[in-house]
Design a protein around this nucleic acid. Sequence first.
DNA 1: CATGAATGAGCGTTCATTCAT
DNA 2: TATGAATGAACGCTCATTCAT
Lengths: 206, 206, 206, 206
Amino acid sequence: MQVTPEGPTFTATARRAQIVAATIDTLAELGYGQTTFARIAERAGLSSTRLISYHFAGKAELMSTVVSEIYGTMGRFMGERMAGRADARSLLRVYITALVEFIAGHQPQMQALMSIFLNHHDPDDGGRSYDAGDDRDAIGHVEAILRQGQADGEFRDFDTFVMAATIQRSLDGLPFLLQTRPGLDLDRYARELVTTFDLATRAPAR
Amino acid sequence: MQVTPEGPTFTATARRAQIVAATIDTLAELGYGQTTFARIAERAGLSSTRLISYHFAGKAELMSTVVSEIYGTMGRFMGERMAGRADARSLLRVYITALVEFIAGHQPQMQALMSIFLNHHDPDDGGRSYDAGDDRDAIGHVEAILRQGQADGEFRDFDTFVMAATIQRSLDGLPFLLQTRPGLDLDRYARELVTTFDLATRAPAR
Amino acid sequence: MQVTPEGPTFTATARRAQIVAATIDTLAELGYGQTTFARIAERAGLSSTRLISYHFAGKAELMSTVVSEIYGTMGRFMGERMAGRADARSLLRVYITALVEFIAGHQPQMQALMSIFLNHHDPDDGGRSYDAGDDRDAIGHVEAILRQGQADGEFRDFDTFVMAATIQRSLDGLPFLLQTRPGLDLDRYARELVTTFDLATRAPAR
Amino acid sequence: MQVTPEGPTFTATARRAQIVAATIDTLAELGYGQTTFARIAERAGLSSTRLISYHFAGKAELMSTVVSEIYGTMGRFMGERMAGRADARSLLRVYITALVEFIAGHQPQMQALMSIFLNHHDPDDGGRSYDAGDDRDAIGHVEAILRQGQADGEFRDFDTFVMAATIQRSLDGLPFLLQTRPGLDLDRYARELVTTFDLATRAPAR
DNA sequence: CATGAATGAGCGTTCATTCAT
DNA sequence: TATGAATGAACGCTCATTCAT
């Protein structure tokens, strides 16, 4: 007799993934305000919203699942790209280039994230949005690179927090730019950002 | 005999201003999704939501009034600060410094704007948000400065659109940063940005 | 010193007439349900609905004024046309012909009447509509003619109430017919009705 | 294995029927203007108006369901009664007799129909009421009988449209008459109408 | 005679969620 | 695992009317 380990069934996992995908599309297309269980169910081809309530404890859990899922994918992608880099200038260049590439390839996901960050106020969390917590991670990551560069003498002396926030913002803004300019040349965009922040960060020649 | 031109009464103007102010506060504090007539009325101390419907044709008109009001204030402020500047480096420096100052002094307004831009999809406008149209103006303004700098030989050869968007994003992000770090030194923040974008834009010494 | 007799001012009378006219147009065009003080005021070019409340005790009084006004006009018109007729066949013929003419010349008024009859339930009157009371008058008038015709031997023996109601309904229906068939030949319509009810009512030849 | 075709559940059908019935009663008793979801729910004994919104897409769908339902019942009734009749005089006689009987037995339904026709302006349909479309059907049906009678030489030469409209109006008016005279003898009413329109339509003896 | 301001009640509709299988 | 049925609360908005001048 075989002991089946406890855990979500295959079917359940698939359903959850399907619902998450439909939620991302709805968020990207209609915005947070219009993203209702009814519209998600319609897009996912579900017979009723009941299935969403069944698989997720509530709207909050659904949204945080969406966020986790996207961050997971992004984290794995970035980890692969940045592996084996050592010096800060390379790390920063690769960070920017890779993130532009990821964002370009995951536009709906990025728009979904933005929608959630700016709108989903969790009442149990004192009304705080996700933004504060989650975006700090990204900024922290960049800031670590910048600090290393300064320690190694590669970068000039600037406020690492301000610079990290500026870099992160320039990347986060890409989805909005793409909305206005769908034909934007992304390689060029990455190269321009790399050059801009290379000039802004590097230590002056002696 | 004086002909008094038709127009809104003093009382009406005051009420509208009061409602707009309460709307901005609510948007900043609770986000667009939670900004309902009931909550606005409560914050403004109105007896019922009916007074909002009385003074504004609908939620859309209220929101666009909020946007116009804030943009008006900001435009006047920036106009005063930038008057008399001629060279691009000065203009850019003053633009960044002044906008940081304005944003720091109008945090709720800025958060209200962001809330509206990202959530208020006008169904009559094909579901488009305000963002596309209005933010382009700000980017266009910065881009004009950058182009002038390149034409005058002050700035190096970069993509003015990408650079303008990057600068604008670094400024737009301030409210979020302040939310996380309320004690942020704004003078320093402005100085860091000025330095960063001065290094990133200026023509190399020959 | 002249003693001005008590009573409505000229201005007031004019305003009331203006409001009544706008009400009739609105009723005819949009139906009772859409006939609100706001829409009446708009059509009458009034600055606010307050003027209607000022001149009429309420919606009920406004509506009953509309009814009275139209019935007054119609009564005077019919009275003139039927004067001098003595025999029932002539009276019936003239009644039908004249009423068709009046209705054709007062379509908005007729549609307004229908709207009110079918929709304006007066809660103080036990929810009764105008219909019962007012339409009985018209039927009563026709019935009197029919009774006279039977007494004089001109008409055959039929139920005068049923016949009167049938005749009145055929006339009341004209506005709806005109709505569907704007080009309807009214002279022909009147002649057809006259023939129809002449055949239906007259005593058989001996 | 039996494939059960998709479709409304038994429970859902019952609920819809219950709501439709309550709607008809409310329309008949209070008129269209007072027929709100709240009053319908109250009459149907529903816990909230939400149940109506749950089973019908909106007020428009509810009203058109009411109309369809009544027309369906009426159509089936009339079809049965008129089956097997061939000559126009018989058809007309049966049509009048059967419709009087049906109307007498379905007074609330008839009043509900009238309420809807005269008040439910569909904004998506250019503000047109149901009246134009649906009542034309009834007139068209009668007109066909009249044309046949003329072609067969049974009826004299009259305008079939005017005559059909007159006949239909005399029948449609029955609910209002019954409101004023609840004790009206319906058999007699039908006989009087049959005689009236027989005299009015039949070809003169040669 | 006129009017701007204000109001409570009610409208149809949509929301996320729960109940009962 | 899935689903139809039901629900109370809240939404933006419109109603006729009243207040105060």
